[in-house]
Design a protein around this nucleic acid. Sequence first.
DNA 1: CACGGACCGTTGAAAATGTCAATCATTGGT
DNA 2: ACCAATGATTGACATTTTCAACGGTCCGTG
Lengths: 147, 147
Amino acid sequence: MPGRDALRDSVLGGDLVFLLARANALTLAAANAALAEHGLKARSYSVLALAADGARPTQRELAEFLRLDPSQVVALVDGLEQRQLVERRTDPADRRANVLVATDAGRDLFARAQQAARAVELGLLATVTAEEHERLAGLLRLLAFPD
Amino acid sequence: MPGRDALRDSVLGGDLVFLLARANALTLAAANAALAEHGLKARSYSVLALAADGARPTQRELAEFLRLDPSQVVALVDGLEQRQLVERRTDPADRRANVLVATDAGRDLFARAQQAARAVELGLLATVTAEEHERLAGLLRLLAFPD
DNA sequence: CACGGACCGTTGAAAATGTCAATCATTGGT
DNA sequence: ACCAATGATTGACATTTTCAACGGTCCGTG
């Protein structure tokens, strides 16, 4: 029987793809748990966040940014729109496209949910200095946005 | 119309959970593409890896380590066993448990797949020094294994 | 020793996600 | 004015996730 962490010291222990997958699974679960009290999940929180800070993204931009199929964005936006947290406005510059805008209620909810999200993030990295925290974010950005 | 990266500079740009999700999605896709020529995906590669380096993990240990439901491990191991890459041996110390062992063919395939995996990882972090690469792995380990 | 509760692997079903093609309205270039 | 390309939407389909139930085994307690 391998000790509790014989596996951790195996080849996969240095495998970035695996570490990313596992870290993602754990943090996603933590985030979903914290967002649940606001009726959100990481996905809907992300959409609300982008709508709330005035970037006025189209659904296609949302899909690309969140790495979702456009049809998944439809469902996500439907949910938020039914709760009156977000509005679809047809883009005056391109009437095929919908631009997402948060309602006042949406911004309010986001502000509260964001605190929960921040608390989770700090909890996850409680053992690390703010400097290392930022370094991690920077390295992840490199992986998340390879230009 | 937000510039190509107005979204990137939004609140989510500093959201660790989001960055992890996106980085995971991209690296997973890259890894799956590279492993496909060996008939593997990231999941089956991980199982094979753990079987191949002699840790002799039980399926339950595999499930916990890979953050999968035990029933998913069944399917994964079934696939590898049918291809004779891996064997189930009932643990002599606990006859309820199966211990996973790679066959010679399994170890061979793993050796080849591992090269592909390493190449992907280096490609993903090509813009970064080896030191930063290792620092990233270390920080991810903190998130992936919060003890 | 026998019992009973806990645990391992397996199965099967249900729910959630992901992927894809087809469609309609609109755009932009020729 | 045409037509290929694009954004959103729908519906179908595959894959993945999650859960409950089961038979076999283990182990501590009576």
